[in-house]
């Protein structure tokens, strides 16, 4: 390739700096993409995608498209991804994907097909573009003395010249999209449908068992994790305390007093609150869970 390019005369030889940039940013972009797909938390996915987009933006700049690179970073990475994060915080915050795949074979099939696709397309591109010349954009967007005064001017000339109609139509598309989003998210309320404070309060206290926030780990907690359930005085988990925003997972908890070897052996462990519960673990006449006002809600 490079030999042929050199023979073509008008070839632009890709410099070492660009090669270094590519080999640094290419893996970053790849890692970002993989991280986006693989991380279970949607917020993490968004952050991974931001890194990929930033890398791509730099790659655009490197590839003689500085305007596009700027737009990529400012509009895409900035505006659009912020929009994503907004919506994510609105709706997707507590909807982390579970590990279990519901569609049988979906993951395996997707992976196999994806690898096959990547191999085929990659191989095809590699074969087809072996002799791809690199004319370079110096001819159309070189600085003073060229056909245009730089990249921005070249893009502007094309955009407001040959692509004017498409540009206008795209503008209309954007407006339609904005109006469409308004229509889609708008909630029609009949006059008088808005509920008063009293009604809202009534609905809250009558409609649910937990008008207040869910109980925290409480004084009987055996772990620091939000993923661990709160404990009732007798050591049983309080069902209402499970956080809905956190997917169930195994959490290391301290054993109850007197029930495991560590306690019986007299080893005191850090942060252990069970020492204070020592007598309660064996109590038989204490308040039973849910039987009276003593039980936390």
């Amino acid at each position: 390739m490079s030999v042929l390019a050199a023979a073509a005369g008008s070839e632009v030889v890709i410099g070492t700096g660009e090669t270094i940039v590519f080999w640094v940013l290419g893996p970053v972009a790849l890692a970002g993409a993989l991280g986006m797909v693989l991380s279970r938390n949607a917020m993490h996915s968004a952050l991974w995608l931001v890194s990929t987009m930033l890398s791509l933006g730099v790659l655009y700049v490197v590839q003689e498209a500085p305007f596009l690179g700027a737009v990529q970073i400012i509009v895409y990475t900035g505006a659009i991804m912020i929009l994503f994060l907004f919506v994510l915080m609105l709706v997707g915050r507590d909807s982390a994907d579970s590990v279990v795949e519901t569609l049988r074979g979906q993951r395996i099939a997707a992976t196999v097909l994806g690898i096959g696709f990547a191999a085929l397309v990659g191989a095809g591109i590699a074969r087809a573009t072996r002799d791809l010349p690199v004319v370079g954009l110096a001819g159309v967007q070189a600085g003073p003395g060229g056909a245009a005064d730089g990249n921005v001017e070249a893009v502007a000339a094309a955009l407001y010249g040959r692509y004017l109609l498409a540009f206008e139509v795209t503008g209309a598309l954007l407006i339609v999209a904005a109006v469409g989003a308004l229509v889609l998210t708008h909630v029609e309320r009949q006059p008088g449908e808005r509920r008063t404070q009293k009604e809202l309060s009534r609905a809250r206290f009558l409609g649910s068992d937990t008008p207040q926030t869910h109980p925290g780990p409480g004084v009987y907690a055996r772990a620091n994790s939000i993923a661990a359930p709160g404990r009732l005085p007798d050591g049983a988990p309080a069902p209402a305390s499970f956080s809905t925003g956190v997917e169930p997972q195994r959490v290391d908890e301290l054993p109850p007093t007197g029930s495991t070897g560590a306690e019986r052996a007299g080893i005191r462990h850090s942060g252990g609150t069970d020492a204070a519960l020592g007598t309660l673990g064996g109590a038989t006449n204490g308040p039973t869970p849910g039987s009276g006002s003593g039980a936390p809600r």
């Binding site: 979906q106 997707a110 097909l113 994806g114 096959g116 696709f117 085929l120 397309v121 191989a123 095809g124």
Partner: peptide, 20 residues
């Protein structure tokens, strides 16, 4: 939707394979 998308990807792989 993901099942349908899987089918589309399968088709795309076939087309790409045929092209190659």
């Amino acid at each position: 939707v993901r099942s349908y998308a899987l089918g589309m990807l399968g088709g795309a792989v076939l087309v790409a394979g045929a092209l190659v």
